[in-house]
Design a protein around this nucleic acid. Structure first.
Ligand SMILES: [Zn+2]
Ligand SMILES: [Zn+2]
Ligand SMILES: [Zn+2]
Ligand SMILES: [Zn+2]
Lengths: 164, 164
DNA sequence: AAGTTAATGTTATACAATTACAATGCGCCG
DNA sequence: CGGCGCATTGTAATTGTATAACATTAACTT
């Protein structure tokens, strides 16, 4: 039934996604002595405007439109911070960044991305993670990071035949 | 025991990796009526010079050094061809390309990449693939492509403490 | 207040990928 | 053979993504 699946749910209360994410970020930073500075917070907010992964230069453009006019390194540093502390996931296959739905929860995420509508949805299948860790162990490989991204069509786009 | 693990094996007969890969490419193209043209073949050979994923501009540089002096589209077109027909895997998390060790074998690959020495090794765990497909089915998500990349330290680098 | 570190600003550049259009090569039909 | 159609390659320009290197500012420490 997948009760919790905001991104691919026909519609949902996205305002609550946002406040949840921002709240989690505040709490995580407070508890770990991290500084959620203005730009970092603003970038996080911009990323959470939707469940579509945002490109760095897209964020840069939005910030510019508000008068900040930052340069690439500024945005990339904010993104690095957010990714480093698990507030945002990088979607390597798209060179884009999406808000983490389980910030502070110590998980390994798998990300589904729709080719039709670009929505991304994060899953955290522990069994999948364990399987990968087991394979790594068999190879005597020490994992630092897993990148698991699944591209295809979400239920909506599959049904309506949209395919890019 | 992982008998077949060329990339992370202390050393191996890489000449046989190369001839195997090139042979497989020839056969696959012949059997499917594809044209393994000079550039395509040359790019494939360059990629197979090692088990380290190559960047497009790195390949471009090597081709230039031989006198070909191609431009980016030429290289990207060759890469597109090789990827499309399963001769090469794109490593999204590195924006690089590595030779496929199971060309023509219809598999879904997971790629281990060492942060220390950059060696990449491809695995094809069917159970992992099935688990991902099952998760997708539960979400009513129609998979087009999986990207599974595991970064960390290979046995050698873990032992010698190299970490970048 | 002075020293120290983290964060941001600035400029320039490196690296990755695509667009658009021209030229060439190659198989096929008449 | 000559002309057509299609795949491949060439070329020029541009766009997109990411980092290097160094200066400046802000925030915490003593
Ligand atoms: Zn939402
Ligand atoms: Zn997450
Ligand atoms: Zn080899
Ligand atoms: Zn493969």
């Amino acid at each position: 039934m997948n009760a919790v699946n905001p991104a691919f749910a026909g519609s949902h209360d996205h305002r609550s996604c946002i406040s949840h994410a921002l709240g989690a970020a505040e709490r995580l930073c407070a508890s770990q002595g991290l500084r959620l500075t203005a730009i970092r917070r603003r970038v996080l907010e911009l990323i959470w405007r939707s469940h579509r992964p945002s490109g760095a230069y897209e964020l840069l453009g939005q910030l510019s439109a508000e008068g900040h006019k930052p340069s690439p390194p500024t945005v990339y540093r904010a993104l690095d911070f957010l990714v480093a502390h698990g507030l945002v996931h990088k979607v390597s296959s798209r060179n884009a960044y999406v808000g983490c739905m389980h910030a502070g929860q110590d998980h390994v995420a798998q990300i589904f991305i729709c080719d039709g509508c670009s929505l991304a949805f994060e899953q955290a299948d522990g069994a999948l993670d364990r399987r990968i860790r087991r394979n790594a162990r068999d190879l005597h490989f020490h994992i630092r990071e897993q990148t698991v991204e699944i591209a295809g069509l979400c239920p909506d786009c599959a049904e309506t035949g949209r395919d890019d």
